[in-house]
Amino acid sequence: MSSAPRLSPSAPVTGAGGHDDHRVPPVPDMARLVGLTIPAACLPDVVANAMLLQGYADLLGGFALPDDCEPAYGYTP
C-alpha cells in the first residue's frame, strides 16, 4: 500500500507556510497529452512526485540571480 497522500487532481495543496497558492498538477491530463497510461493504483504516487517536483521548480524559480553573476563553467565536486 502506498504512503503517498490520496489527492484528487484538483484538490488544493496547502504548503508549510499555509498558503493555498499551489494546486495538484493535472497529472491525468498531462499523461493523456503525451500518450501515457498511468494505472489508478500508481496515480497517487505520481501526483505526490509531481507536487514534489513543482515545489523544487518553484524554489528555483524564486531564486533571483544578479545580472553580473559569473557563470559556472564546470562542476567540481
Score class of each variant (00 low, 15 high):
62 G>N: 03
19 H>C: 08
37 T>C: 09
13 V>Q: 14
41 A>H: 07
60 L>S: 08
65 L>I: 14
43 L>C: 02
16 A>L: 12
43 L>K: 02
36 L>T: 05
29 D>W: 03
45 D>V: 06
2 S>F: 09
26 P>I: 02
49 N>Q: 13
61 G>H: 08
44 P>S: 04
70 E>D: 07
34 V>R: 11
58 D>I: 06
13 V>N: 12
58 D>C: 08
17 G>M: 05
42 C>P: 00
24 V>K: 01
35 G>I: 10
76 T>H: 08
53 L>G: 01
40 A>T: 12
76 T>C: 08
74 G>P: 00
18 G>M: 04
46 V>E: 03
66 P>K: 09
48 A>R: 13
24 V>D: 01
71 P>Q: 01
39 P>K: 11
51 M>F: 02
51 M>Y: 03
31 A>P: 01
70 E>P: 15
50 A>E: 01
38 I>E: 07
7 L>C: 09
13 V>R: 11
24 V>M: 01
19 H>L: 14
70 E>C: 03
57 A>I: 13
45 D>N: 13
8 S>C: 13
41 A>K: 10
17 G>L: 08
39 P>D: 14
7 L>N: 06
28 P>S: 11
67 D>Y: 03
39 P>V: 10
3 S>W: 12
3 S>M: 13
32 R>D: 05
60 L>D: 04
20 D>W: 05
51 M>L: 15
38 I>R: 07
64 A>W: 04
62 G>L: 07
22 H>L: 12
43 L>N: 03
32 R>P: 00
35 G>V: 11
54 Q>V: 07
18 G>L: 04
24 V>A: 07
12 P>E: 09
52 L>V: 12
53 L>C: 11
31 A>T: 01
10 S>F: 05
1 M>H: 02
27 V>G: 10
27 V>E: 09
43 L>V: 02
47 V>C: 11
31 A>E: 02
14 T>Q: 10
31 A>M: 01
50 A>W: 00
46 V>H: 07
77 P>F: 10
23 R>H: 11
21 D>S: 13
11 A>L: 04
